[in-house]
């Protein structure tokens, strides 16, 4: 039984993640008074790219060739280790907050190396910017999860989710502050506004796109898919750790079905929020970004100050 659940956990994130991208793109198109492509378009994109030939730079090494697989595998493992629709699937092996943070860092590490590997100047500055942002986001990321861990007395993500699900007015304020901090980190780590523009190839502003500029075919498909996975992982963390109401607490058909429905609704709402932000605010100048990330960190420190 547990093996089946693990397998479901493992494939749930990659199966749903292109849909998330589709929903965000669709809502952004509506904001721009366009009809936009179908929300299933990202699946078609992946399928199309998977069936194309590839060109790899002569300067690239095996780092460039294997980085997409490593990135994709890491997002799969992390996706399997976080609560998605049920908090009773607790595992004591990989669902630790620090394990999650540092496993995602493996992906960032190889992504940045792959960006430099082809010797293109775009890839180089993309990696430099990405590492700057992710280095500064790390404090906020760990501390926002730490706030929850201190409230719930465990660093296991499933325990946190189960604990926060029980309503408690006393810890509502620190949870909200930690959520604001986490939300800023979410935007930074998933290359969203105001940190990065996922829809641009303008050399002055791109970060994530600059690193994957030299990819094509299957490897590009994996890179795109992996970043979609990462987005869904962060959204799931946000909704299941900070607002876990409705998550399935036990293994009954009713609870699990309700959990799935609630999960779908909350993820869609979150996509709408992200789309709204991307449509209404402008991208910040690169050297303003540290201020935002420090704000995220300070919000979390205040949250910790409220609970300890």
């Amino acid at each position: 039984m547990s093996f089946i659940i693990w397998t479901i956990q493992l494939i749930l994130v990659p199966v749903l993640s292109p849909l998330v991208i589709g929903v965000i793109r669709k809502s952004k198109a509506r904001f721009q008074n366009r009809r936009g492509a179908s929300i299933l378009q990202p699946y078609n994109d992946v399928w199309k790219l998977m069936h194309k030939d590839e060109i790899i730079s002569a300067d690239a090494s095996w780092i460039f060739r294997y980085a997409p697989y490593i990135m994709f595998a890491v997002t799969l493992v992390v996706g399997a280790s976080i609560p998605l629709v049920a908090s009773f699937l607790k595992n004591e092996y990989t669902s630790d907050i620090l394990a999650i943070v540092y496993m995602l860092a493996i992906g960032t590490f190889f992504l940045a190396l792959a960006g430099i590997d082809t010797g293109s100047s775009f890839g180089g500055f993309g990696s430099s910017r990405e590492m700057t942002i992710s280095a500064l986001a790390e404090g906020g990321f760990i501390f926002s999860l730490l706030t929850l861990a201190l409230i719930s007395g465990s660093t296991n993500l499933f325990s946190i989710s189960a604990f926060i699900a029980a309503p408690n007015l006393l810890s509502a304020l620190p949870i909200m502050l930690a959520f604001l901090g986490f939300f800023i980190v979410l935007l930074a780590e998933t290359s969203r506004f105001p940190f990065d523009n996922p829809a641009t190839h303008l050399e002055l502003t791109m970060i994530h796109e600059a690193m994957i500029l030299e990819y094509s075919g299957k490897r590009l498909a994996l890179m795109e898919w992996a970043s979609a996975n990462k987005l869904l992982i962060f959204i799931s963390l946000a909704i299941n750790l900070f607002f876990p109401w409705g998550i399935a607490q036990n293994l009954s058909l009713g609870a699990v079905t309700f959990g799935i429905v609630v999960f779908a609704v909350k993820v869609s709402l979150f996509c709408l929020v992200i789309a709204t932000i991307e449509s209404t605010i402008a991208k910040l100048r690169f050297f303003r970004l540290p201020d935002l990330l420090i704000v995220s960190f300070i919000l979390n420190v205040v949250a910790i100050g409220l609970i300890i």
Binding site: I55, I56, D59, I116, S120, S127
Partner: peptide, 30 residues
């Protein structure tokens, strides 16, 4: 699938090692 080897996209100029990011440049923003 066929995998071809090509040169890195060079915007129409010859890419030289001077156009790569350097260690100093990489950490300058931090």
């Amino acid at each position: 699938q066929e995998i071809h080897t090509g040169i890195t996209w060079d915007c129409g100029t010859d890419l030289t090692p001077r156009m790569e990011i350097t260690a100093t440049g990489f950490s300058r923003s931090i």
